[in-house]
Design a protein around this nucleic acid. Structure first.
Lengths: 222, 222
DNA sequence: CCTAAAGTGGACTAACGAGTCCAATCTAGC
DNA sequence: GCTAGATTGGACTCGTTAGTCCACTTTAGG
């Protein structure tokens, strides 16, 4: 990520650079791009303003670096553990809960707010973040669904659409409510309930219907 | 809405007030709260800055008035036409298409961006807008679903959750992509396809299962 | 210990924007 | 026409902020 600017930097320098970026993250998330000031960031990093400018040429440069890194960091822990032995139900449940937990975290919400707000000012950033975040997630999920379909465990005709539907059915308008502060954040139990419901519905649609009678089909899992 | 400030106002005055509010809407939507300036708004309204301050005491007051009115205006044309004779399928399809069309309109997107961005600065505004917008919509839909369930045409155990699921399955991540400019806006045909798919899935889950044979068991429960 | 790179602090520019003030002008209704 | 309220425009205050400059100090490595 950090390229030319690092070349002549000593260990101390790299350390400061990192501190600045962290401070930038915090301040931008808290106040938004416009309202955040370089002095605040410098102060928070325990560094002089000049040093900030030595490392990042301008406010936008700092902003972009900051946001890109943060997004990557937030998405990292999410994994779909494709190609294992677990059932679709259990895998989707786990993924669902992880996703809900992640996307309702204060830092995710703040990041979301920030990017949505500034995507007009930094158009390429919006697209990039989508690709790295939700886009990558959706692609992985779609691929997984296609794979399970080839396996004969699901019956998904349009994996991209189905992946979106899963995400949609999972989150509903929770994220919006959280973003607008229209409601206290739901507790873990509620998230589990939502995830379970979402998986149940999703599988109701896309599980292969056994030709034979009886209850076999549906919900083995939970 | 307009209260004390209107009392002594002549028709000319009211007209200017309206122009200011329109200009405010446009400029705030375009630039965001911080970046919008009162002078720009005044210029756009064809009015002096002082007149803006005569009508709206400060920038936040203008902002709040502007946004509240705009939201109400945007939501107005949406109607669920409850209590008619049409089938759930046709009603939900119509609603779905209306919703997608509305929420992907540039002005809706801009409003969304703005509110999400500023909900930290104006906390009560976020909650209010949610209540007037998505919240009201969800409530109406939930009520409709409950009604159809009482009618015996659907089988919805948790109408609030189901309403959210419908919205979720309908929109997926389209709105996010549009907000981030990650993709050109879909055409009407695509929206129709999405709406149809969403209704199909939703009804697959919540249509009453005939007691006769088949795979019924699994999911009716919940 | 010396040197060179890195960092510091604080003064400084230049711009910009919210909000105020005021003298001059417009407009409607009487 | 006259008057009162509304409007205008432009000057003005005050605060803020991105970004620059520079003389001085710190630090690490040879």
């Amino acid at each position: 990520m950090a390229t030319a600017a690092m070349k002549s930097a000593s260990a101390r320098s790299a350390h400061k650079r990192h501190a600045i970026q962290e401070a930038g993250t915090a301040v931008f998330l808290e106040l938004g791009y416009e309202a955040a000031t370089m002095e605040q960031i410098a102060a928070r990093a325990g560094v002089s303003k000049q040093t900030v400018y030595n490392h990042f040429l301008s406010k936008d440069r700092l902003f972009k670096a900051t946001i890109a890194d943060l997004t990557a960091g937030l998405m990292a822990p999410l994994a779909l553990h494709t190609h294992g032995k677990a059932t679709p139900a259990s895998r989707l449940s786990a993924l669902g809960l992880d996703l809900l937990t992640l996307m309702l975290q204060p830092s995710s919400l703040a990041l979301h707010r920030l990017i949505v707000a500034e995507s007009a000012r930094f158009p390429e950033l919006g697209a990039e973040i989508y690709a790295v975040g939700a886009g990558r997630m959706l692609a992985a999920l779609a691929e997984y669904l296609a794979w399970e379909t080839r396996n004969g465990r699901l019956s998904v005709d349009d994996p991209e659409l189905a992946a979106e539907q899963f995400l949609g059915i999972l989150t509903g308008r929770m994220q919006l409510r959280a973003l607008l502060g229209a409601e206290p954040l739901p507790e873990r139990a509620e998230l589990e309930r939502r995830a379970a419901k979402a998986v149940e519905c999703f599988l109701a649609i896309y599980t292969i219907r056994r030709p034979q009678a009886g209850a076999g089909a549906g919900l083995a899992a939970g």
